Simulated scan of single mutants.
Amino acid sequence: MTRYTRITGTGSYLPPRRVSNADLVADLATRGIESSDEWIVERTGIRARHFIDEGSEASDLALQASLQALQAAGRQVADVDLIVVATSTPDMVFPSTATILQRKLSEHAQAQGLPGAAGGAAFDVQAVCSGFIYALTVADALIRTGSARCALVLGAEVFSRLLDFNDRGTCVLFGDGAGAVLLEACEHDGSGPALLASDLHADGRHTGILCVPGSLSGGLVRGAPLLRMDGQAVFKLAVGVLEEAARAVLAKAGIEAAAVDWLIPHQANIRIMQGTARKLKLGMDKVIVTVHEHGNTSAASIPLALDHGVRSGQVRPGQLLLLEGVGGGFTWGAVLLRF
């Protein structure tokens, strides 16, 4: 028997404040910037997104998503011996959002008279919108080698704090949220639920097409701390590399694209999602779509979409899922798993 990993629970959380296109258009108008619901929907497929309130952080979103995933898996906080958080919007420079989440999970458990999660490894992964694919792959490797048995893997983002609301080309795209999965060790012949293959890539030559070119120095911000994006360059690269990564994981697993039950892509733009599905000869009826209500939540978008698919009854046990993401760096990757 071979040691595999499988997803045993999923969870997600969106901040309560829903911002519709109409809300955002009205705000832009006060700044003298023209836009419309029709313009945003036609170019992106987005109708609304959720923004976090002041006083809350990425770890707060991650906590709620984690508790849902643990409940779905029938596990307690003390069962978790690894936490990997994919985020580009951490609570602070350091320590990691994962360690802050570990503390908050322990406090939640102890308030109920249960043991906490202290002692297991906890760290962040930074690959922007590909972050959850990277984090899932890293956690899978650690479990397969025996370094952990039960991992919380999350994407958690508060991109609203990185947006330039004078740039209508980017501020309409992004939202906040968190998604989580509980990944556990299992042993079988590979025919049951398991993560089957993964494929990760990066090309630093394209750093400048999607970035937040700022940093801290001497207590001051150095550079520009707001998001910058060359939309056409990102679109051109994204569709091609997503197809390559998808075909790579299918080839590694010896499975044809036609066997995929659900494509769960990074929810960046409906046109990118449609283009990738078309290249794989998959109908949009096989694609989980949440971008219309969530916007682009970066590393959180894939686990948010996965949890939506599970809780809506679309994703069912035994189905074959293809997860894929692309983001700043330039990074991209895919994971194939049987749920």
Rank of each mutant, 00 (worst) to 15 (best):
F330I: 03
R205K: 13
L114M: 14
L183F: 06
E157W: 01
A65H: 06
C129E: 01
G240M: 12
V221C: 09
V85R: 03
F123R: 06
G327L: 01
L306D: 02
L152D: 02
A334H: 06
H266D: 09
L280R: 02
C129A: 06
L237E: 15
C186K: 08
L227I: 08
L14K: 02
L226N: 14
A109R: 05
A69Y: 07
L82S: 03
G192K: 13
F165E: 11
A334E: 08
R222N: 15
A233M: 08
E38P: 04
T8M: 01
N21A: 09
E34G: 12
N166L: 13
Q319E: 03
T276Y: 02
G192N: 12
K236Y: 12
R161M: 03
V181G: 06
R271W: 00
L220V: 10
Q110F: 09
R168I: 11
T87Y: 07
V260F: 05
I255Q: 13
L14S: 09
S301R: 07
G208E: 04
W332K: 01
F165K: 12
F165S: 12
S56R: 11
F123D: 10
G155P: 04
L282V: 12
C211Y: 12
A180V: 00
L101G: 02
R75E: 09
D230Q: 14
D230R: 14
V153K: 01
H266Y: 08
L183C: 08
G219F: 05
G313S: 08
I40P: 12
R278Q: 15
G32A: 07
D167S: 11
V326W: 03
A258T: 15
D230K: 14
L182Q: 11
A48V: 05
D167E: 07
